[in-house]
Computed example of a mutant assay.
Amino acid sequence: MEYPISLAVEDFVPVVLTTTGVLLLRRPLASTGVRQGVVVAATLIGTAGFTKATAKLIAATGGPDLPWLRNLLFPLLTLGFGVLCLVAASARIGRVPPWLGYLVPGLTAACALGAILAHDPIPMLLSTTVFATLTGSQLILMARARGDNIAAGLFGTQLLVFFLLGPLASRPDQTVTLQWIEQLCNTAAQAAFLIAAWRLSAATVAAPTDEELIR
């Protein structure tokens, strides 16, 4: 379908919001010595969104369709959220759980093989969904441990919208109106993620001690 330029340009907005939000997580995760992991995750996630939005903008301005550029989305998102969920788990409990250490490379490899065999990157949507869900769950738990239920709710909202947009995006009748709805919902969700990440980064409320939890 033909995209209006305004729709293509708006697609960059959630990319900027998400990437900025991930970068803000460097502060709450810095104590674990994994700051570089957050930067790597932000780079991969940002690049994923940028490639998809750029391909859309090129098509909207009369350029050629570039499926190879569009198809980088899920592989890069898989890698980005895979790194981020490992970092978040390490920050929350002080180490990467063994099951997660096996799951991330194992599922990534399995979905990548499926994508190669199918000549379609869509199998990597599964790994992206799993790792994004694990990341969101870890961030919700971190926010609750710091006493910031608003941030936890915002992270939860972003995760909920992520699941709701899946069925919408898979509809064959992708009209311009429907795509505007999808993109604006995605922008709102990523804005919620950014605010939650900022709150988590700026939080001064210490996590409750064992004695406080017992009381």
Results as ranks from 00 to 15, higher is better:
75 P>I: 01
210 D>Y: 05
15 V>Y: 02
42 A>F: 02
66 L>R: 12
57 L>T: 13
15 V>C: 10
72 L>P: 04
184 L>D: 08
103 L>S: 12
35 R>F: 04
184 L>P: 05
36 Q>S: 15
87 V>I: 06
54 T>F: 01
88 A>H: 00
37 G>D: 06
185 C>S: 13
63 G>F: 08
172 P>G: 14
49 G>L: 06
48 A>Y: 02
115 A>P: 07
110 A>R: 02
121 P>H: 00
155 F>T: 07
164 L>A: 11
122 I>Q: 12
25 L>R: 02
198 W>D: 14
162 F>C: 09
3 Y>H: 15
84 L>F: 01
11 D>Q: 08
85 C>W: 00
127 S>G: 09
41 A>M: 04
154 L>F: 07
37 G>V: 08
172 P>Q: 10
136 G>S: 03
52 K>E: 10
163 F>N: 13
71 N>Y: 06
38 V>F: 08
96 V>R: 11
34 V>T: 14
163 F>K: 10
158 Q>V: 05
85 C>Y: 00
10 E>C: 13
166 G>K: 10
107 L>A: 05
188 A>E: 03
35 R>I: 10
99 W>D: 14
66 L>Q: 12
159 L>I: 06
154 L>D: 05
92 R>S: 13
20 T>H: 02
117 L>S: 13
135 T>V: 03
4 P>C: 09
163 F>D: 07
117 L>T: 08
63 G>A: 11
156 G>T: 09
95 R>F: 14
145 A>D: 15
105 P>V: 04
5 I>V: 14
21 G>P: 01
45 I>F: 09
149 N>V: 14
171 R>A: 15
106 G>W: 00
26 R>D: 07
172 P>D: 14
97 P>C: 08
120 D>I: 03
66 L>P: 05
94 G>D: 00
52 K>M: 13
93 I>H: 09
86 L>A: 10
3 Y>D: 11
56 K>N: 12
182 E>S: 05
153 G>N: 03
111 C>T: 15
31 S>Q: 15
50 F>H: 12
207 A>T: 02
157 T>N: 11
77 L>M: 08
9 V>Y: 04
184 L>N: 08
39 V>K: 06
72 L>D: 05
18 T>W: 05
72 L>I: 08
102 Y>K: 15
136 G>C: 01
76 L>V: 01
197 A>R: 02
111 C>E: 02
174 Q>M: 13
162 F>Y: 06
50 F>N: 12
71 N>M: 07
195 I>P: 00
200 L>H: 00
187 T>V: 11
